[in-house]
Design a protein around this nucleic acid. Sequence first.
DNA 1: TGCATATATAAGCATATGATTATATACTGA
DNA 2: TCAGTATATAATCATATGCTTATATATGCA
Lengths: 115, 115
Amino acid sequence: MNTTATIDLQRASQLLKLLGDPTRLTMMKLLKSHECCVCEFVEIFKMSQPAISQHLRKLRDIELVKEERRGQWIFFSINENHEDYPFIKSILEHLPEQNESIAELEAQGLRVCCQ
Amino acid sequence: MNTTATIDLQRASQLLKLLGDPTRLTMMKLLKSHECCVCEFVEIFKMSQPAISQHLRKLRDIELVKEERRGQWIFFSINENHEDYPFIKSILEHLPEQNESIAELEAQGLRVCCQ
DNA sequence: TGCATATATAAGCATATGATTATATACTGA
DNA sequence: TCAGTATATAATCATATGCTTATATATGCA
């Protein structure tokens, strides 16, 4: 007997493909506990702004993340209302917390970025 | 408090990337309940034998599946002893059973393939 | 209004991926 | 030993992916 809903295989493989990139997977894990803006990710991943922006777009296109503009910045957060969020969540739960990245940002005064 | 072991993010993304292909993901789900040989997969996926073989190789290379020759045939099965099997298992549990494919094979007399 | 900052988008490019076809290898049974 | 079946591997190719650079857009502030 199945108590949890199942996901269509095509759909599941599409989601897994998106998470099958270390940058995007880390982003999702970070976003699960912390809102982040683009420039914070640029700092964390030491990656160019367009590269970060393009990863976030892929996550947003299938609505795994939400974005919200606040002044100059656009903050990203996990979309907990996504139909497949339970699936995503169960995957993220197997991954180590990424609090050091955030702590580092804070130590450098770069958290809540660009303040 | 974490009760379950976590997986390194690099490692996890590598696994997810492999599962992020509909053919391989379906293979894994099938193999979770049924041993299968290459020619059965060829039948199920309506895909060329080399294509199937190459997918299986990728799964075997990181030891997600085991192979065992029995006469002419090589049977594949899930490697439940894989260090990250709990992670894999938790993903597969969200996917719908693929028993129809096996039932179809049996109906066509193609199960335990090539007998 | 004009400049600085944050972000998005477009174009280009090198590499990865997943298929195909052709061929090699391994086992079975006559 | 030879033919048939199952599988693996190699070479090739079209497409996908993820980065780069260049540029556009949006906001805040002097």
